[in-house]
Nucleic acid binder design. Sequence first.
RNA 1: GCCUCCAUCGUCUAGUGGUUAGGACUCAGGAUUCUCAUUCCUGAAACACGGGUUCGAUCCCCGUUGGAGGUACCA
Length: 482
Amino acid sequence: MNVRVRYAPSPTGFQHIGGLRTALFNYLFAKARGGKFFLRLEDTDQGRYNAEAEADLYESLRWAGITWDEGPDLGGPFGPYVQSKRLELYKQYARQLVDSGHAYECYCTSARLDTLRQEQEKAKQPLGYDRRCAHLSDSEREVQRSRAAYDDREPVIRFHQKPDGETVVEDEILGRVAKANADLPVDPVLLKSDGYPTYHLAHVVDDHLMETSHVLRAQEWLPSAPLHVQLFAAFGWQAPRYVHLPLILGQDGQKLSKRHGATSVRQFREDGYTPAGLVNYLALLGWSYDDSREFFTLKELEDVFTLSKLSKSPAVFDYKKLEHFNGHSIRELSIGELKAVLAPQLPDFTDDELDGYLPLVQERLKFLKDASEALKFVHHAPTAWVREDFVPKKLDEAAAVALLEAALPLLEGVEARDDETNEQRFRTRGEELGFKLGDVMQPVRVAVCGGKVSPPMFGVLHLLGGAESQSRIKAALAFLRG
RNA sequence: GCCUCCAUCGUCUAGUGGUUAGGACUCAGGAUUCUCAUUCCUGAAACACGGGUUCGAUCCCCGUUGGAGGUACCA
């Protein structure tokens, strides 16, 4: 089968992490099957349209490494890929459904629909349209039509929903899902009075015209899938294969939202997540490879992704686990790659400095943005300290002072010797004075880096150089005595 | 309310009609170590409940409970 899949977001806001996963699975499926992956903008809701969303979509996907074969920006054989540019098409197909008796014009005002709803609620009746315009006689229809014209109202077009029987959706991961037609929304609107189609009509028309083979979308669409199946049937078209992906939830089991943490791709990027880490983690939310393998690059996923390993149940988004994957992905980077992503965050570092310092901090980074804080001491000699920080366990401040003084001469020419030699010198001198290396290094660390946590000190001292190191220790000594 | 879907450690998941139910995150302990981190080792932690079917059910069927989604001229 010729695989053609799409990601078709609605441009209402910044790209959501859940949408990224949907896009990712579509992309991976296309790659794994040697098919095509395209983008389509479903901008049929004028009220919620957000102009920033489109650019953010492209940026987010590109950042994640996801590419598309056709789309609003690229064009392609089935364009345009923006629904607001296909309005005539939807009108034409809606009209076709009216002509074939599968749909009808409805002249009800929204005011009437509102009162209808309120009455139904009051009477505790099932909500839904009462089909008043479904079976108008020709003369009644004319009256309604001219009345609407007089009020300057356009009628909507509603689908003639079958009132009985059931509709079956064959989902690739859920299997057979049957729904009684009576439980489907009553005669849903296909074409709105503003001339725009609803999602139902638009995606059915587009997925047919664009020859979509599989629709991978979030499970929240499952309830309306039978309607879509009916629409394809009404047109006499073959429906694509449906694949309803498990939802992503927050820790409390509710739909993932801002109060759980970051939700937009942009936010994750700003928070210092790597695309590789995020993609790896996302791929494992609702999909698995086997009983043990957990690390994958995008490229590797493209080879091994398969629908059959998709899970049915919703997944809770675990930021802690993402952090783990993120740290791992940072450690997987070569120094060159790390330098490329970090250089903009470290503008006061020369290329050589980056080459020297990045290997020292790489395995300590949970987030990319941690680097500037971890290396702040390089260009900013500490000026304020916490006295107790200097004192190694079980020792006193006098010992700390003595150790700093002992370190001073050892630092002479530290930049010329390798780390092992320097370490040996400090160790030997410490032992002469009756201290362990750890005791020697704590006051030095605090004096040079400003705090009790730092990258490995011999690497730091070597790069900083003897003169700078000594001057920092002298400053610390003055602080302790002052 | 009604409809639909789902149900293995706290979380992500593997798995099978007979297994010591496996891995990962988190957590606890330990090893390595100049701090932190990395790495490594060990440990704690699960088949929601009740009925069937079966020689035997975590696995198959039914129900219960729980969770989620849907119920728009939003997608």
